[in-house]
Design a protein around this nucleic acid. Sequence first.
RNA 1: GCCGACGUAGCUCAGGGGUAGAGCAGCUCACUCGUAAUGAGCAGGUCGCGAGUUCGACUCUCGCCGUCGGCUCCA
Length: 572
Amino acid sequence: MKEDLVILRHSTSHLMAQAVKELFPEVKVAIGPAIDTGFYYDFDYDPGFTEEDLVKIEERMREIAKRDLPIVRRMVKKEEALEMFRQAGERFKVELLEAIDDDEVSLYTQEGFTDLCRGPHVASTGQLKTFKLLSLAGAYWRGDEKNKMLTRIYGTAFPDEESLKEYLQFIEEVKKRDHRRLGKELELFSISDEVGAGLVIYHPNGAVLRYILEDFERKEHLKRGYQFVVGPQILKVDMWKKSGHYENYRENMYFTKVDDVDYGIKPMNCVSHIMVYKSKIRSYRDLPLRYFELGTVCRHEKSGVLHGLLRVREFTQDDAHIFLRQDQLHEEIVKIIEFVQDVMKIFNFEFEMEISTRPEEKFIGSIEDWDKAEKVLKDVLDDQGLPYDINEGDGAFYGPKIDIKLKDAIGRKWQCATIQCDFALPERFDLHYVDSDGKRKRPVMLHRVILGALERFIGVLIEHYGGRFPVWLAPIQAILMNITDGQEEYLKAIYARMIDEGIRVELDTRNEKLGLKIRESMVRKIPYMVIAGKKEMEANVISVRMRDGEELKNIDVKDFIKRIQEENLARR
RNA sequence: GCCGACGUAGCUCAGGGGUAGAGCAGCUCACUCGUAAUGAGCAGGUCGCGAGUUCGACUCUCGCCGUCGGCUCCA
């Protein structure tokens, strides 16, 4: 974000805090930074704000802006500032101050309101014109769920009306693309409270989309030397104790007991894949071994985090576990990154990468192994000249990882693919291979997903394409429509032919006007509308209208079928 | 899990202490029609679930479930 935009937004958040203090003097202020989409400020106010309060606060902000109060910076001794905020009962500011090491701190004052702040700020409140308060939310003090929940107000600010308007239009666009809304409109999936929160029910259109993706994935994995394996849905609890999941991941797992034996429903697919590896003695020549499974897992995610398809409790990963020698690690990770690049190009996603390192607590394996693994990950990305961010302490409990964040058609980021390095599970399960010197050695394990979870990926795809899936992914590729009863038989024959050619086609011979049929198909975002009236039938051709308005008049059915089949292969 | 808002017909939503309403969708009939909504009629609801207050609750109170916006967490 540009520096002056940060200053503008940060200043607007101070303006909001001042307005809040004027209207609700008993409120205590916490922090109010600029963020990518605007700004927020956290307040401690026990009754909480209402939507109406938001309107009042915004009005007061405009009034204060009109007063054009100068914003003055002042350096004071830390002790002096502490005394001041203590007197005012601003306990959050006191807590912040106590954590600051410097002798002097800067204060920013605009008539009647002083905030502890590094700054910088605009010169006066009169410069703040184009802003809007957006929403209310709860937020833990310092982001820690053990702390008090404060009330956060989100708003946004821009240098001019034009860009504010643009941003508000962007919010509208985001709403239009919302996969939950499109999922309903396009009859892709549903989530029923009777069935359970976070459990997805695929309807025919969504199920066929999923089937296409699965089919695509199987082919892509076979091409790259992966082998298919399939593991059970439930495994004995002892297995999860051995793997460390019971210790580190139990609160996210579902359990069941049958005939006095405890089972855990799998939250990850690795254990079965490890059992395949362990089933016989492996030679150094066998490695790398790449086991792939479209593995369905269950994780008890906290109720508040569930979100359409993007965060669910049962989902299917395009999961693989690769068993390999240390010396193969670098090359294999390069291959996986190339795999991700190939696949994301097909869906037209750009992406960014992040490396997550060892957590402070809740990890297995030695610190030495962690350091080794982290180094390999960094080396690969450095060698490939790929930029990345470091996410300290954000690794999985069994190893560090590279996370890949997709950037969709309107610039939003989504986490899907991940490559996780694991020295710990091979140790726990005592995996080995026989090396060229005849000695037993420990393999390394990579956990990786390309699309991530099919549910999440489908959700992202829906928003990425705004429901207008490319032809190869479209649940319904073409819809046939007649103009009068006279063409019903003609279209039925064409329908049979297209179905036979593997095209996903629908037949609409209802006694309705063409305009209505076109409209309904447009709403459903079907790529091709095939129209046959008296004229087409007599000439033994069809007319095709595309969802972007383009038309193909009087073409041969054979040519049309060929066109769709080519698009299926080209994957555009 | 936490903070806040919300839950009325398949969908989108209005209403309000005296047992509910619109538009779209659905069904029936008429119309046989050329590129984004033909017309008329009919039918459709334990007002999320459970308890409490009340002569009476869909409306008020409490609890639960779920959804939405966030926080924390994550594929």
